[in-house]
Amino acid sequence: MKTRVHFHEKLNDLKMDVLAMGGLVEEAIGKAIHSLVRNDRSLAAKVIKDDEHINEKELVIEDQCIMLLATEQPVAGDLRLIISILKTIRDLERIGDYAAHMAKATVNFEAGSLTLHEDIFRITEVCVSMLKDTLKAFSSGDVDLAIAVKEQDDIVDSMYLQLFNEFLSDMKSDPFHIKQVSALLLVAKYLERLADHITNICEEIVFMCTGKRKDWAK
């Protein structure tokens, strides 16, 4: 006989809410980069404003988790799911903040004659794809996918390093655009940092599904 039907429905709703929050974050990254490319300040302003929704979403999900912990006393897989959700939403919220920071960089960015590096688009593509796959792994409990996504963080790190060096030489060769290039460097740094938060979520997915902490250092 099936029991605790309502509790498991609530858990399922919670998962859906996390995926919806992930969708908002993914959208925010995309819009932030578009606003930079098009120098679209109103779109950037919208990304900054919409970050409030992401922050609110985190609090709503957190409250639901606390309520379920207090009233349902979950154990085993259910407990691991709730704990993972609590940690995942914190990372998602932080990723949302980075998207807002990127949008703020757009507001302050005066492109002028500066051409945007292709690599900025490529690193963004990798980050967005990582986030999409992470949400997919979270939804389906796909440990292998989560591990594969986490491993892509090395690609983002090396892309960032390459961009850093390129921006540095740009600043040396064209001191007139130091302010703009610095803004782009910050954007690259935000992308590198948000990929780190995506990998945190991947670690949580592995823990949620297996109950074991993988030794990532190996």
């Binding site: 006989m1 509790f7 085993a76």
Partner: peptide, 11 residues
């Protein structure tokens, strides 16, 4: 079966 029982999926 242990997981299902302690999580209240049957009983």
């Amino acid at each position: 079966r242990t997981e299902d029982y302690i999580c209240g999926r049957f009983g």
